[in-house]
């Protein structure tokens, strides 16, 4: 990736591969989805640039959720897993040195958050967030525990499948993405109204991380692989001043 590439305009977002903003199956969207169309325009330097975070902000245990809450004193309870993958853009280029943040429930499905009142207990050894920078080839990895499924107030008896929340910056504010990773084989995926806001079956499958025994460590942890694709940049050989701009 060259600095030149980082100044190019972004490929317009294909909204059809994203969830419907308004979806009665996920009730809260009904009061929070805009009812008017988005204003679609070519990106400007504002969207094409973005914050860059250096290694200075990342602590050595930040990508180890098994140990980061206790600063290495005691491991969290749960099934030990490695979650790894690459951050790429739509053109297939790796996104180097970009910040990836995750947060998740503990093994019992309980979040360490003031607002979570689920009666599954907190794990004194588990905080539930982590962060890392991708390497020059876009690789990242986290050591964590598999989060539990949990019930949530929506329809009468809705449960979230096991999932890890991901926040990715890319190198442009217009690439900013928050998504969720699910686990291969979880029967709750197909029953989840939040998953079902995505209408493209292939796009749902791209959120389901397969078991990856090639990265599992014998007698220690299993591994799941989760690649993330951000918006790419558009080559600009023929630039015209757009009508009305």
């Amino acid at each position: 990736m060259t600095d030149d590439y980082d100044t190019l305009p972004l490929i317009p977002r294909n909204r059809a591969v994203h969830p419907d903003p308004y979806d009665p199956g996920y009730k809260t969207t009904m009061t929070r989805a805009p009812s008017l169309p988005l204003l679609s325009l070519d990106s400007t330097v504002t969207e094409q640039t973005g914050p860059v975070f250096g290694h200075g902000v990342i602590g050595t245990l930040d990508n180890n959720l098994i140990l980061n809450w206790t600063k290495g004193e005691a491991p969290a309870v749960g099934e030990r897993i490695l979650v790894h993958g690459r951050v790429l853009d739509e053109t297939g280029r790796p996104v180097p040195e970009t910040l990836v943040e995750i947060w998740q429930a503990n093994a019992g499905g309980r979040y360490r958050h003031l607002k979570d009142t689920y009666f599954a207990p907190l794990d004194p050894n588990f905080g539930g967030c982590g962060r890392t920078l991708t390497d020059v080839q876009g690789h990242y990895q986290f050591l964590t525990i598999r989060p539990g499924a949990y019930p949530w107030p929506n329809r009468g008896n809705d449960w979230r499948p096991m999932h890890i929340h991901f926040s990715v910056f890319g190198r442009a504010f217009g690439q900013r993405l928050i998504t969720q990773m699910y686990f291969e084989g979880d029967p709750l995926i197909d029953r989840c109204p939040i998953v079902a806001t995505i209408k493209d079956r292939g796009q749902i499958e791209q959120l389901v991380a397969p078991l990856d025994m090639s990265r599992a460590k014998p007698m220690d942890f299993l591994a799941y692989k989760f690649d993330i694709v951000l918006r790419g940049r558009r080559q600009t050989f023929f630039e015209n001043r757009p009508e009305g701009m």
Binding site: V17, Q180, I194, I198
Partner: peptide, 30 residues
Amino acid sequence: TTLTETASQTAGPYVHIGCIPTFAGLGAIY
């Protein structure tokens, strides 16, 4: 050969844990 952007999903009610840990009550993490 272009790839498709990963689908977004809601940040959910507990987004603060990952993004502003102090707000969620995890001030000690970073």
